[in-house]
Simulated scan of single mutants.
Amino acid sequence: MAMMKHAWDNYKRYAWGLNELKPISKQGHSSNLFGNIQGATIVDALDTLYIMEMKEEFKEAKEWVEKNLDFNVNAEISVFEVNIRFVGGLLSAYYLSGEEVFRKKAVELGEKLLPAFNTPTGIPWALLNIK
């Protein structure tokens, strides 16, 4: 629990809303795997926060998702990375908590990702502009 609290508190202090924290430089960073979608660490951590009963942190993360998680970007994203980090994070948070916001966001993003799976070969595209 202490390690998760330490990691979460430092992410919140140095990189809140960005996709990653560089721990040595204490700088927030957002890789281009997600285009301009922000908050991968927040979404990724939702299930862990819930399971570890970090209620205040879960509440803050949920509020960030409600107010700031935006998929209306004109950018090329990695279908795989967005699928596992965002869709997976949102669905696991919904499954555990029953909070409707997570289901709605997962459906919204899933619909934007659908064209990547409609290919002549059946193999999804690696990259997709979700606009």
Results as ranks from 00 to 15, higher is better:
20 E>W: 03
53 E>W: 05
7 A>P: 00
109 L>Q: 02
47 D>H: 14
96 L>C: 01
15 A>F: 00
43 V>I: 07
77 I>A: 05
27 Q>S: 10
110 G>R: 04
87 V>D: 07
62 K>T: 12
98 G>S: 01
119 T>A: 06
130 I>S: 04
130 I>D: 03
11 Y>I: 00
16 W>K: 03
20 E>A: 11
101 V>W: 06
80 F>Y: 13
45 A>K: 07
38 Q>P: 06
121 T>Q: 11
89 G>F: 00
48 T>A: 09
109 L>C: 09
72 N>K: 11
100 E>L: 06
130 I>R: 09
15 A>P: 01
34 F>H: 08
111 E>M: 14
33 L>N: 15
83 N>P: 10
64 W>N: 00
39 G>M: 06
8 W>V: 00
34 F>Q: 05
75 A>L: 07
85 R>N: 04
88 G>A: 02
79 V>I: 09
11 Y>D: 00
115 P>N: 10
56 E>D: 15
59 K>F: 15
90 L>A: 07
34 F>M: 03
77 I>P: 12
126 A>F: 15
41 T>P: 02
50 Y>I: 00
79 V>R: 03
39 G>V: 07
8 W>I: 00
4 M>P: 02
23 P>S: 02
46 L>W: 03
63 E>R: 14
40 A>D: 10
33 L>A: 15
10 N>Y: 13
43 V>M: 02
100 E>K: 13
86 F>H: 09
82 V>K: 04
107 V>S: 03
115 P>K: 13
4 M>Q: 14
51 I>Y: 09
53 E>Q: 14
79 V>L: 05
26 K>W: 07
116 A>C: 08
109 L>Y: 10
92 S>I: 07
85 R>K: 10
111 E>H: 12
28 G>V: 07
43 V>K: 02
40 A>C: 07
106 A>N: 00
29 H>P: 09
108 E>K: 06
61 A>S: 04
126 A>Y: 15
42 I>D: 04
130 I>W: 11
73 V>F: 09
70 D>G: 04
47 D>R: 13
56 E>N: 14
97 S>M: 04
22 K>F: 14
81 E>T: 02
41 T>I: 08
1 M>I: 09
52 M>F: 15
109 L>I: 08
50 Y>G: 00
124 P>V: 05
114 L>A: 14
38 Q>H: 13
69 L>V: 02
35 G>W: 10
129 N>S: 11
46 L>N: 05
116 A>D: 08
4 M>E: 14
48 T>R: 11
85 R>T: 13
11 Y>W: 02
29 H>D: 13
126 A>N: 15
30 S>R: 05
57 E>F: 08
102 F>R: 01
108 E>N: 07
17 G>K: 08
10 N>L: 12
76 E>P: 13
46 L>M: 08
17 G>N: 06
86 F>C: 01
120 P>G: 03
126 A>P: 13
41 T>G: 06
32 N>E: 13
19 N>L: 05
95 Y>Q: 12
90 L>V: 01
7 A>C: 12
35 G>L: 04
109 L>E: 07
91 L>N: 08
82 V>Y: 08
23 P>K: 00
50 Y>E: 02
22 K>A: 12
114 L>T: 14
88 G>Y: 01
124 P>A: 09
45 A>N: 03
96 L>G: 02
73 V>M: 08
125 W>G: 15
